[in-house]
């Protein structure tokens, strides 16, 4: 299992109610899962929990065999980049770096990701760019790319160096329908190719065809003891 959640509870420090209460959830290696649900239902908090950005109880989150909650804060950054590739809703590219340099960032900070490269960071990045039809834009700064191009670069950055788990948070919200279809096709295809588990959180309809499993947030999350 790439991801195991067990009795995951979380309440933001200044909130009255807990936002997460997930008794059990698992994701197998290489499995592609679409997690659906309306806004405000804890999707983003869930991603924060499994990437070690928020403090969770020991034993609640297990990613690739590591108990995230047991990691000291200083280890969590390194752990995240070693094992998880994240595609953000807002792309989160560094605008003044070239597309290629944005993609190779995880290799800068993670020896593990670097070690899992097929070739050099530059060549792997170029291979990913080619697979995403962006080969000609490798040296263009990210800020000069269109939304669709930025999203593909963000995907390539999450994929490089073969992390165990790819997490995408509303990755298609900024894309038009054609681009959405195209992007999801590329993302799931690349995840399958590298053998990574793919967890996409989205409330976009019509993405189901790209996934092995589709579940609703309300199926797994029971804040206040009731479904979201």
């Amino acid at each position: 299992m790439t991801l195991i959640l067990r009795d995951l509870r979380y309440q933001w420090p200044d909130a009255a109610e807990p936002v997460l209460n997930i008794p059990e959830f698992t994701l197998a290696a290489g499995e592609r899962l679409l997690l659906r649900g309306p806004s405000g239902c804890g999707k983003s908090t869930l991603l924060a929990a499994l990437s070690g950005v928020i403090d969770v109880a020991t034993g609640a989150v297990d990613v690739a065999g590591t108990d995230v909650g047991a990691l000291p804060p200083s280890r969590r950054d390194a752990f995240r980049v070693d094992h998880i590739g994240i595609v953000f809703q807002a792309f989160n590219l560094i605008p003044w770096l070239s597309a290629r340099d944005n993609i190779t960032l995880p290799c800068t900070f993670s020896a593990r990701r670097r070690g899992q490269l097929v070739m050099s960071p530059k060549e792997d990045a170029d291979a990913l760019l080619a697979a995403l039809n962006l080969a000609s834009l490798a040296d263009t700064v990210a800020g000069a790319l269109s939304h669709g191009q930025q999203q593909r670069v963000a995907a390539a950055r999450a994929l490089i160096g073969g992390p165990d788990l790819i997490v995408a948070d509303e990755p298609t919200s900024a894309l038009d329908p054609d681009a959405k279809e195209n992007f999801m096709h590329l993302l799931s295809g690349e995840a399958a190719r590298t053998g990574a588990a793919l967890l996409v959180v989205s409330h976009d309809p019509g993405l189901e065809s790209h996934f092995d499993r589709v579940i609703n947030m309300s199926d797994i999350n029971f804040p206040k003891g009731a479904p979201c």
């Binding site: 200083s74 950054d77 390194a78 995240r80 980049v81 070693d82 994240i86 953000f88 989160n92 590219l93 560094i94 960032l105 995880p106 800068t108 900070f109 993670s110 990701r113 950055r157």
Partner: peptide
């Protein structure tokens, strides 16, 4: 924002 992006790709506060 730049710093939080860097952190999201693995940069620690120390980096």
């Amino acid at each position: 924002r730049e710093f939080s992006i860097l952190r999201s790709v693995g940069a620690s506060p120390r980096s």
